[in-house]
């Protein structure tokens, strides 16, 4: 029982180390960490999925009726 508790305590302390505070996000704020920063194709694909799923006409282009075929 004691061993299990110690194991859980160690696991929880591991989670604590992963927590990044708001003032420690300097590196994450860099452009390279933005979604699709490395590839325009990725952004295109994201938009395609978004517009197809939402079936909406957004401010970034024209989408179809939700079938994902355009």
């Amino acid at each position: 029982m004691r061993g299990v508790l110690i194991l859980f305590a160690l696991l929880f302390s591991g989670c604590k180390a992963l927590h990044v505070k708001p003032w420690e996000k300097e590196i994450f704020a860099r452009e390279i960490f933005q979604q699709g920063a490395c590839s325009d194709r990725f952004v295109e694909a994201q938009h395609h999925i978004y517009f197809s799923k939402e079936g909406s006409k957004g401010g970034e282009g024209v989408a179809g009726g939700g079938c994902g075929c355009n």
Partner: peptide, 9 residues
């Protein structure tokens, strides 16, 4: 001690 370690998160 377990209670304190959980709350120290």
């Amino acid at each position: 001690s377990l209670f304190l370690s959980l709350f120290s998160l």
